[in-house]
Design a protein around this nucleic acid. Structure first.
Lengths: 218, 218
DNA sequence: GCAAAAGTGTTCGTTATACACCCATGC
DNA sequence: GCATGGGTGTATAACGAACACTTTTGC
């Protein structure tokens, strides 16, 4: 291969790009992943991360927003880029390079509806993920690792919880993401010294013990 | 935008993809970055990270290898994906999405030669980087953050050092990457308890103190 | 009133940091 | 032989892990 081949020209090789998004939600005290089942070929009846092509005039981030909105009505989510995948035979229709993202949402805020090309949309527990099409199991697994990584560095949980939440709920979320049990007292100590939460005067009703509600500062 | 637009079809929008690579080297006790200066438009006389287009039949990783080989003769490097950039007006010739990687090499092993389209290839200190074309200053900065991140998690320094090196050299490298001073005794303790280095019987000649040479295990 | 969950502090072990002297080599 | 850098250990502080009882609320 010649160096001259490496320069961008009007005739440079072009390929289709897609975005795929691992949407994490927190439901029944478990971290869930939202998958769609396609109703038509390719991948008829197979499960996939929601995703779609990047169109002309869109950045990847804009594409993710559009795709998520179209598939699930979800808008304005916290998104994080995970990785770019470029294996040659990923897609049966044509060469497609995809960029994987993750987003964090609160399932209650986003009733999911199966739309075009999709026969079913469903939240899956992470320990019960189906075999997905293409390399999407790999994408999902990489997305979870990235989420864990980010969680360790900063307190990010996007829309995973309600605006006001108890420390117990926050801890359950952490345990879910990290897939490990945490000591309650140590967890509370750590979170409090991060100084990112605001203690409201309210208590959560309908729960024994009368736990305090917190919200994110600012 | 309609959902039907999100599905991959033979006619889906396509765009040119490039790879850009932040090549880090360690020279005169400082971490350096290898940049190229273009000899022709676009970006005539401007500095850039070495990069080029992804061609048909190549993965991004293969493209990086080819581009690096063509520009610098560098082969078989440790490469790490940094991030994908898709802003609309990045490139003057056409829409181009790029994926940034970094690689770690030992400058002494790779004499650099300016080839096609390149008038100059030069190692720059990180604190003396020129203004680069497009968004390459951003790419370089993101690549360094990623390198730091990876360094904290595992002992990776690719080809940055010779096969056999002294602990002092390793420490200088760390200090260079992290841009902070480390305590000599604590550093040595930490590295040793990682148990990744093999102590050779050899000492480095020409250096006062007669420091021991180490190499990576296995 | 009793069962269930919330809230709270202390001890201990591990890890990270700070710090000073003797030894080997080059010149 | 002296100046430069290599090599080593210990004491202290910070951080993370383990652990039990009292208070509040729902039912």
């Amino acid at each position: 291969m010649e160096l001259s081949n490496t320069s961008v020209t009007p005739g440079s090789y072009e390929c289709t790009m897609t975005v795929d998004c691992a949407i994490f939600g927190f439901q029944s005290n478990k971290l869930k992943l939202l998958l769609v089942r396609r109703s038509t070929d390719p991948f008829k009846n197979e499960w996939l991360l929601p995703g779609g092509i990047m169109n002309d005039g869109q950045t990847l981030e804009e594409s993710v927003n559009k795709v998520l909105f179209n598939l699930t009505g979800i808008d304005n989510t916290h998104q994080e880029q995970v990785k770019c995948y470029s294996a040659l035979e990923r897609h049966p229709v044509k060469r497609v390079v995809t960029v994987c993202f993750y987003a964090l949402i609160k399932p209650e805020n986003h009733p999911v509806i199966a739309k075009n090309y999709v026969s079913e949309v469903k939240w899956f527990s992470l320990d019960g993920l189906p075999k997905m099409a293409i390399d999407h199991n790999q994408l999902a697994s990489d997305a979870l690792l990235k989420l864990r990584d980010n969680l360790k560095q900063k307190l990010i949980f996007g829309e995973l919880l309600a605006k006001k939440f108890t420390l117990k709920e926050l801890q359950d979320l952490y345990e879910s993401i990290l897939n490990e049990k945490l000591d309650r007292r140590n967890f509370r100590k750590k979170i409090k010294q991060m100084d990112l939460l605001l203690e409201t005067k309210e208590k959560k009703a309908g729960v024994k013990g009368g736990p305090n509600l917190y919200m994110i500062k600012e």
